[in-house]
Simulated scan of single mutants.
Amino acid sequence: MSGTVESKLASLGISVPAATAPVANYVPTVISGNQLWISGQVSIADGKPITGKLGVDADVEAGKAAARQCAINIFAQIKAALGDLDRVKRVVKLNAFVNSAPDFIDQPKVVNGASDLFVEVFGDAGRHARSAVGVAALPLGVAVEIDAVIEFA
Rank of each mutant, 00 (worst) to 15 (best):
V5Y: 04
S7T: 03
S7K: 06
K8W: 08
A10L: 13
I14K: 00
S15M: 09
S15K: 08
P17D: 01
P17G: 00
P17M: 00
T20N: 00
T20I: 02
A21G: 10
A24N: 12
V30P: 03
I31P: 15
L36H: 04
I38R: 08
Q41D: 14
A45Y: 12
A45K: 09
D46H: 11
I50Q: 15
T51K: 10
L54S: 11
G55I: 03
G55N: 15
G55P: 09
V56D: 04
A58T: 11
V60S: 08
E61R: 13
K64N: 08
A65T: 10
A67W: 15
R68Q: 01
R68S: 00
C70T: 03
I72L: 00
I74P: 15
Q77V: 03
I78N: 12
I78C: 11
A80F: 05
L82Y: 02
D86R: 13
R87K: 14
V88N: 07
V92E: 09
K93I: 08
L94S: 01
L94G: 02
N95V: 06
F97S: 04
F97V: 14
N99E: 02
N99R: 04
P102T: 07
P102E: 07
P102D: 03
N112S: 05
F118M: 02
E120W: 10
E120R: 13
F122E: 10
G123N: 05
H128L: 01
A129T: 02
S131A: 05
A136L: 10
P139D: 12
P139Y: 03
V142F: 06
E151L: 11
E151G: 02
F152T: 02
A153H: 06
